[in-house]
C-alpha cells in the first residue's frame, strides 16, 4: 500500500460566476521516501491539490474522491483530527516566507510552538530542539538567531525557518508549494539543495510543486504535469524528458527558454492563453489550445494511456502526439 494515495480527487470552488472545477479526477500515489513533482501553470490546480492534502481548502469549496494516508481517508476527518495530522504527518512550506511567519513573534517562539503542542516538550527541551533544528536547516549562529524576529532575516533565511517549522514534528510527507519562487536564483539553489538533503536524511516523502520545469526536473523522482485542473502526463523524471508525449507537455517544454540553446532557434509558443476554470470543456481541458484537438476531445474526458512502464498520458490522440515532432505540432 502506498503511503499516500489520491483517488479520483475533484475540487469544486463556488465563485461569484458559478462553480469552478479547480481539480478534476486526479489520481496519483506516493511511496515513503519518494519525491514527486507537480508542475503546471497558474490555474492548473497544483496549489489546490496541496491545500486539499493538508485539509486547508477555502470554505467555498467542495471535494469528491479520496485522499488516503496509510489507507485512512483524510477528506472524511474532522477538523480536530486533521489538526493532529497536520504538522505531525504532513507538513507544508509556502511560497512567501514573509507572510507565512508571524511578524510579532520571534522565530524561536514560532518553531517551539508546534514542538510543545504536538510533542508535549518542556520549555527547555523545546528550546534545545529548536536550536538543533535551526542548525539543521543551515542558519548560522542559531543561539543568536533564535530570538530574532522574521524581519531581521533575509528571504532565504526565512524560508529556512519555515523548513525548520515543517521539520519540527518529523512529518512523513513534506509538501513544498513553490518554495523558491520568491527567491533569487542563487538562494533558490541553496534552499532546494537543503530540501533535497533533509528529505534523504530524514526519509521523508516530498511533494514539490512548481511552475518551473527545471526546478522539478532537478529535484524529483517522478513528475506529474497538470493543466486546467487535470493530470495530463505522469512519469519518471529521468526518462520523461526524452519522450514527452502530451501536446501540452511538449509545448510547455519547447516554450521555455533554456540556457545554452542556440539563440536563433525560435521559441515554440502554445497559442491562446491559460483558460479560466469556469468555462472549461467537459472533455480534455487542453482542447482549446491543442493542435490535435478533434470533436471527441471537447466532450469526452481523455483515456489514460500507459505509453511505457510508469509513463501515463491522458490524451485521445496519443499515437499522433507521439509521432509528430513538437515543431510540427505547433507551427
Amino acid at each position: 500500500m502506498p503511503l499516500l494515495h489520491v483517488k479520483d480527487l475533484s475540487i469544486i470552488l463556488s465563485t461569484n460566476d458559478g462553480p469552478a472545477r479547480a481539480v478534476r479526477h486526479l489520481d496519483f500515489h506516493l511511496d515513503a521516501g519518494e519525491t514527486l513533482g507537480i508542475v503546471g501553470e497558474s490555474g492548473c490546480g497544483k496549489s489546490m491539490t496541496a491545500l486539499a492534502l493538508m485539509g486547508l481548502l477555502p470554505e467555498m469549496s467542495r471535494t469528491e474522491g479520496q485522499i488516503l494516508l496509510d489507507g485512512e481517508d483524510l477528506l472524511q476527518k474532522t477538523e480536530d483530527e486533521m489538526c493532529r495530522v497536520r504538522g505531525n504527518r504532513l507538513a507544508m512550506i509556502f511560497q512567501e516566507p514573509m507572510t507565512s511567519l508571524n511578524p510579532v513573534h520571534t522565530i524561536g517562539h514560532q518553531i517551539m510552538e508546534p514542538l510543545r503542542l504536538h510533542l508535549g516538550l518542556s520549555e527547555s527541551d523545546a528550546r534545545a530542539e529548536t536550536l538543533r533544528l535551526l542548525d539543521r536547516v543551515g542558519i548560522p549562529n542559531p543561539t543568536a538567531r533564535i530570538d530574532n524576529y522574521p524581519h531581521q532575516l533575509s528571504g532565504g533565511q526565512r524560508q529556512r525557518v519555515m523548513i525548520a517549522i515543517a521539520l519540527s514534528c518529523k512529518p512523513d510527507i513534506l509538501i513544498a508549494d513553490e518554495p523558491t519562487t520568491a527567491l533569487d536564483v542563487t538562494i533558490q539553489d541553496q534552499i532546494l539543495e537543503l530540501i533535497q538533503t533533509l528529505v534523504q536524511e530524514e526519509g521523508m516523502a516530498l511533494v514539490l510543486i512548481s511552475h518551473d520545469l527545471g526546478v522539478i526536473s532537478e529535484n524529483t523522482d517522478n513528475i506529474l504535469v497538470m493543466y486546467g485542473g487535470a493530470a495530463v502526463e505522469i512519469g519518471q523524471t529521468e526518462r520523461i524528458f526524452d519522450d514527452l508525449v502530451h501536446p501540452y507537455t511538449q509545448g510547455l517544454f519547447a516554450a521555455m527558454p533554456k540556457l545554452g540553446r542556440a539563440r536563433n532557434a525560435r521559441l515554440i509558443t502554445i497559442p491562446g492563453t491559460v483558460p479560466d476554470l469556469i468555462h472549461m470543456p467537459t472533455g480534455c481541458t487542453f482542447t482549446d489550445r491543442c493542435p490535435l484537438a478533434s470533436d471527441i476531445c471537447r466532450n469526452t474526458p481523455p483515456p489514460v494511456v500507459e505509453v511505457k512502464a510508469g509513463h501515463m498520458v491522458a490524451c485521445h490522440h496519443v499515437q499522433e502526439a507521439r509521432h509528430r515532432k513538437t515543431e510540427e505540432l505547433f507551427s
Binding site: L213, S217, E218, T237
Partner: peptide, 15 residues
C-alpha cells in the same frame, strides 16, 4: 559563473 550554474535545467537529471 555561479548564476549560470544555479539556473535549474530541465531534462538534465539531478544536480
Amino acid at each position: 559563473r555561479i548564476l549560470l550554474d544555479a539556473v535549474p535545467k530541465p531534462g538534465r537529471g539531478k544536480k
